[in-house]
């Protein structure tokens, strides 16, 4: 069953003014429960705007979005941002609890479980400023999983981290996702990362349209060193390069 359905979605900034610019145009896709879907594309193609619209932070201009919850109630969302977005004056554990629906014992236990999964049990009473950037991002990931979301949105969560930390966190994310099987929509500009993590990759092109929807049918867990992963990464990268060349030609013709 689809957890997220997006139909003919469009977004125009500064509607009705001379500065109006369309960033998303006729976007339609759905995401089935328990799948990991990545949205990739060059800078400025509307990836983050799409995620902000799905999360409700930003309004869309036209089209429909529907979210389905397993429980029948309103759908619960988790969000991992580019930066960790933790309350600096609250401890790690209190940051986890800040976004929870209730303060019950099972909720506390669930927060502890996810903190344990990202290896930060011992740091539960630390303030965010006492942790490294990678550790703070791990808290952000644990917080998002701990709300038991129907849909988990991730907006380039490893883009601010160094390569080694990012690689470690990607492996950790794969492990947590394999255990929780949450529905994830992951935005990235890194095709290599997308192939390593996803069941499906939606490629956005400049102008905010869907260029291609690619299914990644590889066994898990995946590691970058695996030759089959590397081959597919090269193939997807090639398709993306072709799209960029096509976009360039189209804009030159239009000019």
């Amino acid at each position: 069953m689809a957890v997220l359905t997006v139909k003919n979605l469009a977004k125009t900034f500064n509607v009705g003014t001379a500065k109006a610019s369309r960033v998303l145009d006729d976007i339609s896709f759905d995401v089935r429960g328990g799948t990991f879907v990545s949205i990739v594309g060059p800078s400025g193609c509307g990836k983050s705007t799409l995620l902000n619209i799905i999360s409700g932070v930003e309004e869309h201009t036209s089209g429909d979005i529907s979210l389905t919850s397993d429980s029948g109630g309103p759908a619960r969302m988790g969000y991992v941002f580019q930066d960790p977005r933790l309350l600096p004056w609250r401890s790690v554990m209190k940051n986890m609890m800040y976004v929870q629906n209730d303060r019950s014992e099972p909720t506390v236990a669930r927060c502890r479980k996810y903190l344990d999964m990202v290896g930060l049990t011992k740091n539960a009473d630390f303030f965010p400023g006492q942790l490294s950037g990678g550790m703070q991002q791990r808290v952000g990931i644990a917080r998002a999983f701990a709300v038991e979301p129907d849909l988990l949105l991730m907006d380039e969560p490893f883009s601010h981290l160094d390569a080694i930390t990012a690689r470690g966190l990607r492996a950790q994310l794969q492990d947590i996702w394999a255990q929780s099987k949450k529905t994830v929509v992951f935005v990235t500009h890194d095709v290599v990362e997308a192939v390593e993590l996803s069941d499906r990759i939606i490629v956005l092109q400049p102008g905010g349209r869907i260029y291609e929807d690619i299914t990644i049918d590889l066994p898990r867990p995946r590691r970058q060193t695996d030759p089959t992963v590397a081959t597919l990464q090269a193939e997807v990268l090639g398709r993306l390069e072709a799209m960029k060349a096509l976009s360039r030609t189209a804009s030159e013709v239009a000019a």
């Binding site: 999360s55 409700g56 932070v57 969000y79 941002f81 209190k94 800040y98 976004v99 709300v147």
Partner: peptide, 21 residues
């Protein structure tokens, strides 16, 4: 604004936003 957006995304109740944020 980032922390306010984070609170909106997670549907944090207003009373808790005032107390903790």
């Amino acid at each position: 604004r980032d922390l306010r957006d984070m609170s909106t995304t997670y549907n944090v109740p207003l009373s808790r936003r005032i107390k903790d944020l």
